Amino acid sequence: MKAKEWGISGAAGGLRVDERDAGTDGPGDGLALELVRVTEAAAIAAGRWAGHGDEEGGRAAADVMHELIRSVPMRGVVVIGRGTERDTPVLFNGETAGDGTGPACDIGISVGDGVLSAAGDVPNALAAIAVAEPGALYDPSPVLAMEKLAVGPDYVDVVDIRLPVADNLRAVARAGDAQVSDLVVAVLNRPRHRRLVHEIRDAGARVHLIEGGDVAGAIAAARPESPVDLMLGTGGSAEGVVAAAALSCLGGSLQARLRSETPGPAETGFGEVLHTGDLVRGENVVFCATGVTGNEVLRGVQHHSGRTTTQSMVMCAKANTVRIVTSEHRPSGGTRSTGPYDG
């Protein structure tokens, strides 16, 4: 299916929010298609710095996202942002976003999701936006760390983050009529996960180390074409809420526990178990993400002679749609999409 053309700068272009989004029903499918041009532009800005070992990409991506999101027809408030107004001049928690028309909504952002560190050109990086009804997005601040367990629709009811790793792996294997040795577990490649990696391998499963961030890892666990069966580990709490929005659109599940900053044994320092519905409430949830660097679900930004290509995922929980949008951006500012198609 062909989509209309739209630009990546200036006022919102050809894909407009439809009448369903303009009333009190909250964000919907039309708004998701408006937001994809924002994540595309942010991904391109971040991608220009990938591999340079410089955090300038984070600032560039945030500036572009901040500029474009102001033209999106919505009345948004950033709930999951880049910190407080003291921390950052743009996209801070509590900032308003949108042009003041359209649905009222909460906004969660993840700009670069890991590529913006000095690690450079790492895989699994996304520029993502999650939008839900006012009051629907859980605010984890000031706790920064979150232990996460992400699975797809087939395993929602069989896992429990409080159980030992081996027990959850056996439960997933039984539900999928597979052997534990067939399972692939995505884990952020961080020193803090050495013990977790050993536990997964000791149980007989395979470890798939991811670099850029766990939003892509959580999505991969819920996509049938991905080799990943589940994701485990500790990452940012803000990214956990954004990932939960994506999983709510995919029918998957994110279980999470906020991590205390107080040192202690592995059995202590955890908050209560939070489920997808605790992190993102309601069914009016939309999620857009564009690959910055390649990952299991999306290609990264690619530069060719005279053009740049991006690949994005656009999802709406209420409409039950998943679209993959591949766009070609040309120097004139025009953008042509070869999607979206429903997945």
Rank of each mutant, 00 (worst) to 15 (best):
M1A: 12
K2E: 13
A3I: 10
G7F: 05
I8P: 08
R16M: 05
E19T: 10
R20W: 10
G23I: 01
P27W: 03
A32D: 10
L35T: 01
V36A: 03
A41F: 10
G47C: 08
G47Q: 08
E55R: 12
D63H: 04
E67D: 15
L68G: 09
I69W: 01
V79W: 01
I80P: 11
R82Y: 04
G83D: 07
R86D: 14
R86Q: 08
R86G: 09
T88E: 08
P89Q: 03
P89I: 03
V90F: 02
F92S: 12
G100A: 02
T101W: 00
P103A: 00
C105K: 00
C105M: 01
G108V: 02
S110N: 10
S110G: 12
G114A: 04
D121V: 05
D121I: 05
V122C: 10
P123L: 02
N124Q: 11
L126F: 14
V131F: 02
V131M: 05
P134L: 02
G135P: 04
L137N: 11
A145L: 14
V158H: 03
I161G: 10
L163K: 12
V165F: 03
A166S: 15
D167W: 04
N168C: 08
L169H: 06
L169Y: 07
D177P: 05
A178D: 12
A178Q: 13
Q179Y: 14
V180M: 05
P191R: 02
R192G: 07
R194L: 12
V197Y: 02
A205Q: 10
L209P: 15
L209T: 15
D214E: 15
D214F: 06
A218M: 11
A220K: 02
S226E: 03
L230N: 01
L230G: 04
M231H: 01
G235K: 00
G236L: 04
G240E: 12
L250A: 01
G252C: 03
R259A: 05
P263I: 00
E267N: 11
V273A: 05
G277I: 02
N284L: 07
V285H: 07
V285P: 12
F287Q: 15
A289W: 10
G291F: 11
G294T: 15
G294H: 08
E296L: 14
Q302A: 10
H304R: 12
T308P: 12
T309L: 05
A319V: 09
T321F: 00
R330W: 09
P331M: 10
G333E: 13
T335E: 13
T335W: 01
D342S: 14
